[in-house]
């Protein structure tokens, strides 16, 4: 009940109370103990609140519900429930091959705000596109889907490496010269534009 968010909110409230004390009685800082307390209340604790807040927000942004809360991502979220084994994201989500509560992040960990600084900035521009500009009708991943996202889990797995097609193409797959989602391979992914016409799987509550 009193999880990490509760602890963070308690820390923020404690900081607010301490800072408010200095607002009401700034003369407290005239003594040495007051100066130390002022440093804790007005510098150390707020800096800790920024760090803990940023960490919490980054953790929350890995959640599936965070990603699909944007209107542009709605159909991508629906595509996780398509009742057809050909649909790669749906198959992974429904069979728990990825954690369902972090389904987007599991396969797009190098993308937007999760990757290096360049990707984090690109992620922020997507927030701008969603709320200030206009999202594109057809959404694409800049640079294409990186096979590393598949190989993080499948690389080294017996049934993946024993497959003769994978075996023959292994160098092209690991060097990202050939995409795992190329035509003829695992090419049925989100198909967001068609998702409203497809049969959906309803999980048992």
């Amino acid at each position: 009940m009193f999880g990490p968010i509760g602890i963070l909110i308690a820390l923020i409230v404690l900081t607010i109370v301490l800072v408010a004390a200095f607002l009401v009685r700034p003369s407290v800082t005239s003594g040495t103990a007051g100066k130390i307390l002022a440093f804790i209340a007005l510098c150390a604790l707020p800096a800790l609140c920024i760090g803990a807040g940023m960490f919490t927000h980054m953790q929350r942004s890995e959640q599936t519900k965070f990603c699909i809360s944007c209107h542009a991502m709605e159909n991508y979220g629906k595509s996780l429930y398509v009742d057809d084994a050909k649909y790669l994201p749906a198959q992974h989500f429904q069979n728990h091959r990825v954690p369902p509560e972090e389904a987007c992040y599991a396969c797009h960990a190098d993308y937007t705000i999760y990757g290096p600084l360049k990707d984090k900035l690109a992620g922020v521009t997507r927030i701008y596109t969603q709320y200030i500009s206009k999202p594109p009708t057809h959404i694409t991943i800049p640079g294409g889907f990186n096979n590393h996202q598949c190989l993080r889990c499948h690389g080294g797995a017996r049934n993946f490496e024993a497959n003769p097609v994978h075996e023959a193409l292994m160098d092209s797959l690991t060097s990202n010269q050939m995409s795992c989602i190329s035509s003829g391979c695992h090419d049925t992914v989100h198909s967001a534009s068609e998702v409203n016409n497809l049969k959906m799987w309803r999980p048992v509550q």
Binding site: I12, T56, S61, Q63, F66, S69, Y131
Partner: peptide, 25 residues
């Protein structure tokens, strides 16, 4: 400094109420 920090901390509490990209921003 106190007013700025308190306002910022109140904004932080509000941002923690929902899981949404706008709250992150």
């Amino acid at each position: 400094a106190g007013v700025l920090i308190i306002l910022g901390l109140i904004v932080e509490i509000i941002s923690l109420l929902r899981v949404h990209p706008l709250m992150f921003a």
